[in-house]
């Protein structure tokens, strides 16, 4: 495996007294698309929130380009070049579509993404740029959420269940945009319930079960059998 851009070692995460992740370890190589799968409540979102700094953890448990980031605040993590498309989109309702995108880029990190380029990727957003973000359809809101994350020109882009609640045809169109997003050195982590989708877009897959890694391997090589065992623990 080439030099990992993200390296997680023995990560424990808690909500109050409840422990959601147990000694979780995982590596993501620079430039790859990594998939994280797992049943409801397995801890996928908790992992995303931990990496992005929304949950603070032991500093050494998460390293980004070698630097310990487990104890940093979310804004400090974002400044280092990690962006999250959160589960449920969570756009800013008081901001227009365009303002949601602009605020995504407000740190001014240099890189390929800017408003014109984003509107080329999702042309419908250019048409609707002045309406409140939450007035859009679910699929269009997901485009805004992805665009908002891209506008920060991240080195690592994490997407948490971007197909949740969307019609299959919309999911297809969003995933068709993915090759135009990754590449150019961007590393991505994709959280998905849809296993086939996850395997088809990724080079490595990690399966979580009750807060622990139950399977990890090359997406092209894992068997259906191994996945269903890792998924359900049977």
């Amino acid at each position: 495996m080439p030099e990992p851009i993200l390296s997680i070692e023995g990560l424990d995460a808690h909500y109050g007294d409840f422990q959601a992740l147990y000694g979780l370890s995982m590596q993501v190589a620079r430039g790859e698309v990594a998939a994280v799968i797992g049943a409801n409540g397995a801890g996928k979102t908790t992992l995303m929130r931990s990496v992005s700094g929304l949950i603070r953890n032991q500093p050494q448990a998460i390293r980004f380009r070698g630097q310990p980031i487990g104890g940093l605040r979310a804004d400090q993590v974002a400044a280092l070049g990690i962006a999250l498309v959160p589960e449920g989109r969570l756009l800013f309702p008081s901001l227009s579509v365009e303002e949601n995108l602009i605020i995504g880029g407000q740190m001014g990190r240099p890189g390929p993404w800017n408003l014109p380029r984003l509107y080329d990727l999702f042309p419908i957003l250019r048409e609707r740029r002045h309406v409140p973000a939450t007035a859009l359809s679910g699929g269009q809101q997901q485009m805004v959420a992805i665009g908002r994350a891209l506008m920060s020109n991240p080195d690592l882009l994490m997407m948490d269940e971007i197909s949740l609640g969307l019609a299959p045809v919309v999911i297809k169109s969003i995933y068709e945009a993915l090759p135009g997003i990754v590449g150019e050195g961007l590393t991505a982590i994709v959280v998905e319930q849809d296993i086939a989708k996850a395997l088809s877009v990724s080079s490595r897959v990690t399966c979580l079960q009750e807060g622990r890694v139950s399977l990890s391997g090359a997406s092209a090589q894992v068997t259906r059998d191994a996945i269903s065992r890792a998924y359900f623990g049977v």
């Binding site: 979310a74 974002a78 969570l90 901001l95 740190m107």
Partner: peptide, 16 residues
């Protein structure tokens, strides 16, 4: 306005 809407997601935008 973003902080007023969702404090945690505003942090993700790099706003302390």
């Amino acid at each position: 306005r973003a902080t007023s809407d969702r404090q945690d997601i505003a942090q993700l935008m790099g706003l302390n």
